[in-house]
Design a protein around this nucleic acid. Sequence first.
DNA 1: TTGAATTAAACAAATGTTTAATAAAAAATT
DNA 2: AATTTTTTATTAAACATTTGTTTAATTCAA
Lengths: 201, 201
Amino acid sequence: MKKKYSETEIKIKTAAKSLFLEKGYSATTTRDISKESDINLALLNYYFTSKKKLFEIIMLETFYDFISKMVEVYNDEKSSLEEKLKLTSSKYIDMIIAEPHLPTFVVNELKNNPSSILKILKGQIMESKLVDQYNDGVKKGIYKKIDSIHFVTNILSLIVFPFISSPIIVKMKKFNRKEFNEMMYERKKLIPEWILKMIKK
Amino acid sequence: MKKKYSETEIKIKTAAKSLFLEKGYSATTTRDISKESDINLALLNYYFTSKKKLFEIIMLETFYDFISKMVEVYNDEKSSLEEKLKLTSSKYIDMIIAEPHLPTFVVNELKNNPSSILKILKGQIMESKLVDQYNDGVKKGIYKKIDSIHFVTNILSLIVFPFISSPIIVKMKKFNRKEFNEMMYERKKLIPEWILKMIKK
DNA sequence: TTGAATTAAACAAATGTTTAATAAAAAATT
DNA sequence: AATTTTTTATTAAACATTTGTTTAATTCAA
């Protein structure tokens, strides 16, 4: 994961990430990247061998960030399950508002690059403190006995899906971007409440 | 929406839809389509003018189907809110299992083709019987006073997002496709229960 | 002076589209 | 009914761009 990149390499990577996120792999050309980063076309291959390789590096880093940000909160030792839900919800919504193309990019490009990138996941979520706390609750009879995969899936669904489907939501409610974001801010508070209701007996 | 297509046109459309769904617009070439449908390359332009036009037709029809299937249940006059939730959940999960690429395709290609295609939505969901029933419940004080957009968004999120993120879920739980589908069958029953818990006071 | 960084130009392959010729089907004429 | 004419459908080839990548020359820095 470590590697010190030269200034030029960073310029290429930054531009490439922005374009890949917005338009996806196939719709982004090497000339787009060269133009956006203001570097000579040949330097892309000089530093990164191929468009494909460059993409893989960016995909890996992006997905790693995406997961790390989540797991950070999930594994906090001190906080309760409820507190974790609140924090996750809040941090994740802020993060995606700052980079709205991220979820669509991740889910969409993921189906083409399976195992190698998804290795990052290994146990990170399903063996997190949050899931432990949930399973404890189940064992104690506080929460309904439902596989924790549903618990994890529901949290992600309620947070991430609205962003992915934002064109639809915006159209249905005649929202502008600001109003949509306000809807998502509302959800910061609502999602933890909903999740608790869902798991409690 | 109506138009009688010749046999050749249908062959082209069928192959094109399958490829667009699987690989997206940019990654699908006209030669891919010609090969898959077993028609001469030139016929694509002869019948559909351009790859872009062909895509727009398919996108429109696909999105229209996607919404129609939903609204069908939403507008049933006789059923209760709870029954509608059960039916929606069940029908939609079956539908996506039969065509797993559909959600990713819709959400991903939607951000490039905004208004023209999204016109289909106009009032269809937010003015459906289901949303009326929800709003009645709010008025009667049975349900919490939360904007119905959250209600609609949550239903869709819990049903659709797991499919979109299936590569992640599959990896986290070491599922195969069959096990993943079984998880989704479980959710047919769970989602309506969850939604009810979320909206009740 | 040597090696790395940068550049403009070129290359081959891929891609969307068009052309011009032919085949097949439909319509019109005898 | 048979033949001709016209329209439609299909084909192989060509065309002009675009795209990812490489080359060979030049600039820059150590």
